[in-house]
Amino acid sequence: MATYIVLPIIALLAITLATIEQVSALGLSALPLAIILGMLYGHLSLREEDEQDQRFSTFCKQKLLRIGIVLFGFGLSFQQIIAVGWQAVAIDFLVIATVFSVGTFVGIKVLKLHRDLAILTAAGSAICGAAAVLATESVLKPKQEHITIAIATVVLFGTVAMFSYPFIYQWVGISDKAFGIYIGSTAHEVAQAVAAGQSINGETMQTAVVVKLIRVMMLAPFILMLSAVLGRLSRRAKNTAGINSLGIANYDADKKSIITIPWFVFGFIATAMINSIVILPEFIKVAFSFASQFSLAMAMAALGAQTQWSTIKAAGPKPLILALLLFIILMFGGFFLNSCFA
């Protein structure tokens, strides 16, 4: 069966499965499900991809991905920020800055991981899971296996974190709203914030989702800053004797010397701004939400279909160690931050 038929089917199946109560309770959204189903198809299918299949897969991983992120902005608004207060915004910012900085430094300098893999893993843990990994991909242009490994580790520890929140809640003495802020500022995926909040009560879930969505909104300025920083590092690397400013041997300096700011970031900001100013009819919001999920799920399915398990296995334990470290920072460091602002 042709790829242009299989990938939409996988995307729709992933979206459908994510709506099942037993599945959503596990914190599995359509995106992780799509990549899992895509990997199953890629391993079980005996059909060789032709040129048309490859072009369609590339279209899904590039164009549809960016369209999906732009449409995702219609689910966010600046009014949500006002509702939870400046403390939640400050906590989200500090969490993102700390987790990304530590993850990148430890991944590159200590664990000696490939730069792209370290950045992708750190971005996914710091901001919004698989969606952040895919958005960061547009700046780095990394190898496909690096994207898959980063997503796999982020999904794994994001799921572990989600099941940890109800246990933590029993042992801490903070309000339901404060615990919701803690969940939203540290959960990897939006779906995991929903599931973890639901396990406490309605107020906690609502606060957790809003705070998590604020973290998602910070994806846009993060991508712009990352693009600018990497562009500067690449220019410096070309002027050194094969050593870049992070102390790692330079690779593909010419290839990465020109880093363009991805257009979809401005689209994401624009759609969020429109949703903040204009009261859109509910059916339009639902349509945009589905289109966003479907586009992103197609991108994930295409990525999974072209990924082999042997690639992930060959990466070794270091990516898991990095993701575990970031998980610990999120759970314990995030709780400390929330206690300071409580």
Score class of each variant (00 low, 15 high):
68 G>I: 01
31 L>N: 06
303 L>A: 00
127 I>E: 03
237 A>C: 10
113 L>I: 07
178 A>L: 10
12 L>P: 00
56 F>G: 06
85 G>F: 08
225 M>Y: 10
204 T>H: 14
222 F>S: 05
156 L>W: 00
282 E>S: 05
47 R>Q: 15
68 G>F: 01
199 S>L: 15
33 L>R: 12
2 A>R: 15
70 V>S: 07
69 I>N: 00
32 P>C: 05
269 I>K: 12
198 Q>G: 04
3 T>I: 15
8 P>S: 07
312 I>V: 14
312 I>R: 10
263 W>Q: 02
277 I>D: 02
83 A>N: 12
105 F>R: 12
117 L>T: 07
296 L>Q: 04
39 M>E: 01
341 F>N: 02
32 P>T: 05
169 Y>C: 05
131 A>S: 15
181 I>P: 00
179 F>S: 08
3 T>G: 08
237 A>Y: 02
249 A>E: 08
282 E>V: 12
106 V>H: 05
164 S>N: 04
137 E>N: 13
251 Y>Q: 15
260 T>M: 13
86 W>H: 12
25 A>L: 10
323 A>Q: 06
31 L>P: 04
38 G>K: 02
328 I>D: 03
298 M>V: 01
258 I>E: 14
133 V>A: 03
200 I>F: 06
10 I>W: 05
276 S>Q: 10
134 L>S: 08
93 F>D: 03
94 L>C: 10
242 G>M: 07
156 L>E: 01
202 G>V: 09
120 L>S: 08
90 A>F: 08
132 A>K: 04
178 A>I: 07
299 A>H: 00
329 I>T: 10
163 F>H: 10
323 A>T: 04
236 R>D: 03
19 T>D: 08
168 I>K: 06
282 E>Q: 10
97 A>C: 14
206 Q>R: 13
331 M>T: 12
141 K>I: 03
157 F>Y: 15
40 L>W: 10
170 Q>H: 14
134 L>P: 02
220 A>P: 02
253 A>R: 13
298 M>F: 00
135 A>M: 09
15 I>V: 08
338 N>K: 11
131 A>T: 15
198 Q>D: 11
74 F>I: 06
141 K>Q: 04
144 Q>I: 06
77 S>Q: 08
115 R>W: 01
57 S>A: 13
189 E>T: 02
269 I>C: 11
208 A>D: 04
306 Q>D: 07
156 L>M: 07
258 I>Y: 14
152 A>N: 02
125 S>R: 02
237 A>N: 07
324 L>A: 14
198 Q>R: 10
194 V>A: 09
43 H>A: 07
69 I>S: 01
234 S>M: 03
202 G>Y: 09
158 G>A: 04
329 I>C: 10
88 A>T: 03
211 V>G: 01
114 H>Q: 15
8 P>M: 05
305 A>F: 09
31 L>T: 10
